[in-house]
Nucleic acid binder design. Sequence first.
DNA 1: AAGTAAATTTTTTTT
DNA 2: AAATTTACTT
Length: 802
Amino acid sequence: MDLVSSLNEQQAEAVRTTEGPLLILAGAGSGKTRVITVRIAYLISERQVPPHQILAVTFTNKAAGEMRNRVANLLKGFQLNSAPLLATFHSLCVRILRQDIEKLDDGYTRSFTIYDTDDSQRVLKACIKDLGLDEKKIVPRVVRSVISAAKNRGEDVQLFTSSVEQTDEKQAAYAKIFRLYEERLLRANALDFDDLLIKTVKLLRVSQETRDKYNDRFKYILVDEYQDTNSLQLALITFLTEKQQNICVVGDDAQSIYGFRQADIRNILEFEQHFPSAKVIKLEQNYRSTQTILDAADAVIGNNLNQKKKKLWTQNPGGERILYCQAVDGEAEARFVASKIEAHRSRDASKRIAVLYRTNAQSRLFEEALRRFRIDYNIVGGFSFYERAEVKDVVAYLKLILNPDDDIALLRVINTPSRGIGKASIDELQSMARQTNGSLWSAIGDVVEGRSTAFAPRAKNAIVAFWNTIEKLKAKAEGFAGTDKPVSETVIAAIDDSGYSQMLREENTDEAEGRLENLEELVNAAADYDKDPEGGLREFIDHAALTSDTDKYDGNAGVTLMTIHSAKGLEFPIVFIVGLEDGVFPHSRSVNNPKELEEERRLAYVAITRAEELLYITHSMRRRFYGDEITAEPSQFLNELPLELIEDLSRGPSWLSYARSYGMGSEKRTPVTTIDANVHEKPRAVYTGKTYNSADAIAEFFKNKGGRASRTGETFSRSSDVSRPSTGYDRLRAAASENARTGRSDRDDDAFVPGSHVRHAKYGKGLVLRREGTGDNVKLTISFPGFGQKKLIQKFANLERA
DNA sequence: AAGTAAATTTTTTTT
DNA sequence: AAATTTACTT
C-alpha cells in the first residue's frame, strides 16, 4: 500500500516529515484531516512506530472519532497490538489526572468529580450568597467567565487577587469569590473544565517523574486546530514533547474563532519561536469549494488587517454564483430557506445541506419552517442530551455513588423526586456542613447517627431515607462490578431505586414520557461501557461531562442546523448562511471592538468555506429580539462580498439591488478606487466595508474632504452624486421603518434624537440609535442600511433629517 | 412543602 | 416570546 501516492507534493512532505517540530499551515479545505490521518498511518506502517506511542489531540470528541475511523480504514489489514491515542485536550487531561493527580499532594484524589459549566455556576452562586454579596450586582454567569478567563491565562487565586485593582469593589469581590470557589471545589474533590488543564500542566511542571513518564509514552504528538489553543494548552504540549520534539501542529490562523475562550492566535503565529528548528509547510490547494466560493471567502477575510498572507487556489470549476435573499422578517427568511431545501432535496437527496447561524437562539424559526415543510433535519447544539434535567439528575445519583462529597450532585437530587426534604432542612444541613467544614454528605451522616438534634422526627426520617437510598445504591453498584453489565445495571438501579422513574410515570404526561425515553437512551449509552474493558462507571460519568453536543453530529444527515462555531471542520455541498444582519452577525457585542470584529470576520470566513458547491446567504429586515420586533440592518460582511458573484433571489428590491444601482452606477461614470486594492484584484464598488467609527477617523475624513483627495477621501468625496438613493430598496426601507420604528422624528431639524431618521452624504439614510455628549461634542450612533452602525460627530457629519 | 402566579431575565460562540 | 427564578398561597 502506498499511503502518500494519493497526496499532493506539500501534503506528502507533511506526512514524510516525521521528526522534529512541524507546523502545517492548512487553508480551508486543503485536506488537513487527510494529512493528519495519513501521517498517523504512515508512522505506524512505514516507520514502524508502535501505535500507542502516537498521540493526536483535538478539541472535540467528534473530530477525534472521525480521525479514529479514518486511521482504522487506512490501516485495514494491519495486525496492530496497540492503538494510537486520539483524544481531546480535556479527555487527555482526565486520563493523566486519574492516574497521577495524587502526586500533586494538594488534597485532590484520583476519584475526583468533574464539574461542568452549570455545576460551576451553582457553586459560584452559593459562594456569592454565603459571602453576603449582592446577587443583583454580582452575576454568577459573569463571575464564572471572569474566573475561567483568569484560569485560562494561567492565573491562580493568588495571582488573580494581586493583579486585581483592590479599589474596584467588583474586582475585589471576584477575587474573594474565586478563593471560596476553589475551597469548595477542593472540599468536594471536584475539578471544573479549566482545572483539568491547569492541574495537568501543574503536575507536569512539578513532577519530573510524571513528565518523563508521558514523554516516554508519547513519542509522536499531533495537534489539530492549533490556532484555537490557549496558553495552558501550549504549556501542556510543551511539557509533553520536551524530550522528543516530535510535535506536529496543524492549523489556519484565518479560522481562529475561539478568542473568547482565551485561544491565543500567537501560538500559531509564533510556533517557530516556541519550537526552534521547526519546519513549516503550507497547504494551499483547496479541494473542497468552487472558485466562486473561494473568491467570496477571500474577499471577506481580506478586510482583516491581522493575518498571515496565503493564497488558496483550486482546480475546481468556477461554479454557480452565490445565491442571495433578503426577507421581510425572520419567518419569511426561514420559509425561503425551507423552500429552497425542499427543492434541492427533491432534485438530489444525496446532497447534504447545512443551515448555519451565529447564535443558537436563531435555530427555532428554521426548525419550525422545516417541520412545516415536513423536511427531516438534524440539529446540533443548544440543549445537549447530557444537559437535560432528567439526565443530569440520574448522572448526579451516579456521581454520588462514586463521590458522595459532591455537594452539587447531592443538592440536585436530595429532593428529586420529592421525599419531604424541603428548603428549611437543606439550609440546616448546609449550616451544619459549614460549621464542621465538611460536605453535605458528612452532615447527613451526623444526622443519621444521631449527632444532631436540629431536626424534627419527620424531617429526620426523610433525611435517613435519602441516606439509605444512596447507601443501597452504592452497595448495589459494587455488586454489579464483575457481572457482564456493570454500568448499565447501575444506571437502571439509579433510575428505579431513587424513585425517579416512578415519579415520571405518575406524572402521566407526554413530557414525562419523553423524559423516560431519554433515560432509556442513557441506559443504552451506558451499555456501551459494559463491553469495553477500559470502561466502567467512572468513565461513563466522565464521558457525560465531557461530551458536547457538537459530538453527536450525524455526518449522514440530509439537513443539519448548527452554529458556525459547531460547523468548523465540516463541509457540505450546499450551505445556507442566515441572519447576515448588523448586530446578529457580526454580533452586537463585537462590533465596537476591532479585535473581536476581526474574529467575527474569521467566523464569516469559516462559514463561507464550509460550502463545496453552492452557497446561499440570507438576511431579514425585521427580527424579534427579546420579544420585541426591531429593524435589522444588512451585515457589513455583505458589503465585503464581490457583488458580481451574487445572484439576487429576493422578492422585489433588496439591499443587493440597492447596492448595485449605487455602486455599479457610479462606477460607470468614474472609476472606483478600492481602499485595499492590493488585496482584491477585481475592481469593486465603493462598498469596501471599511468603517469609520472612531471620532478621530471621522474628523480626519472630513478634513480631507475639502483638500487634496487622499485615496480614502476620494472614495468618500464622490458620494454627493449618490446621496439620494431613489431605488426601490429605499422605498421598501421607508415603508418598513414606518411600521417598525418605535422612535419619532423630531420637528426640530437640529435635534437628531434616538429614533429619528437621518440622511448622510455617504451612507444614505439611517436610524439614530444613541446620542452622547453636548454642544459641539454631540456624538450620534447611527445604523445605516448596508453599512452597519457608525459613530459620528454631529458637528462634522452634515446630517439631514430624513 | 409544594404548587402556582408573578416577576425577571435571556442571545454570543464551547471543552 | 419563552424560559427561568422568585414570591405568594394553600
